[in-house]
């Protein structure tokens, strides 16, 4: 079976969305897989929602952007609306429930519906936060709260990274740790405690998603 994981991560500027995506893709590369990471950039970036697309696969990857993600992550209210068109009937949707309130989470559905609708996000400030009817699985990760209470606010996005790694299940822990080292190694050298802190945050994210998937 050919492996392919499509991930969309969205949030506000400063939440570390692009770093998560970059590290995830780099881990894919470390595994010797094809990996493609593309940020959305441009004028929209300033003040808009920050979105990143990552694909990791055995074979050469198709277009850099895609319609439905296997894992879609939203880290703010606006981000939910920005990426919900990428959420399909097989998508694992991850959000930070310490930041976002989604009024009524829909029931999990088993029947898969082929969708060919194009993803045309519209960013409106006053949109209510909502999700599509058909979603594979919704997982709430209170990353902000956990980071504040148990670790350090700065590693909030590494908890999310752990959650994505476990939800996407295409890169191993070792590769993700190498990719984290590649990105943050210099900071770790100055302050070795940071390494420990980051890896604990990573594990936290992995554990939350693992548990959520077992329960379902």
């Amino acid at each position: 079976m050919k492996r392919l994981a499509k991930v969309v991560i969205a949030g506000e500027g400063g939440q570390g969305v692009q770093s998560i995506a970059d590290i995830l893709a780099e881990a894919g590369n470390e595994e010797g897989l094809e990996a493609l990471y593309i940020p959305n950039f441009g004028i929209e970036q300033r003040g808009g929602v920050s979105v990143a697309f990552v694909q990791i696969a055995d074979n050469l990857i198709g277009s850099p952007k895609f319609e439905k993600g296997d894992v879609v992550v939203a880290l703010s209210d606006r981000a939910v609306n920005r990426v919900k068109c990428h959420v399909g009937a097989n998508t694992i949707f991850v959000y930070d429930n310490s930041l976002i309130e989604i009024a009524e989470l829909p029931e999990k559905t088993d029947d898969y519906i082929e969708e060919e609708g194009e993803c045309r996000p519209v960013e409106k400030e006053d949109q209510p936060v909502s999700l599509p009817d058909k979603i594979g699985k919704v997982i709430a990760v209170p990353a902000t709260d956990i980071a504040k209470k148990e670790l350090h606010p700065r590693v909030f996005n590494v908890i999310i990274l752990g959650a994505v790694v476990e939800a996407a299940r295409i890169v191993g822990e070792d590769s993700i740790k190498i990719a984290i080292e590649n990105n943050l190694g210099k900071k770790f050298d100055k302050n070795p405690e940071l390494r420990e802190l980051n890896f604990r945050a990573l594990q936290k994210g992995i554990d939350i998603v693992k548990e959520a998937l077992v329960r379902s």
Binding site: A25, E26, N29, E34, A35, Y37, I38, P39, F41, P64
Partner: peptide, 10 residues
């Protein structure tokens, strides 16, 4: 193109 310019891949 801009995608190729900005994306990362091996």
């Amino acid at each position: 193109d801009g995608y190729q310019a900005k994306m990362r891949e091996p």
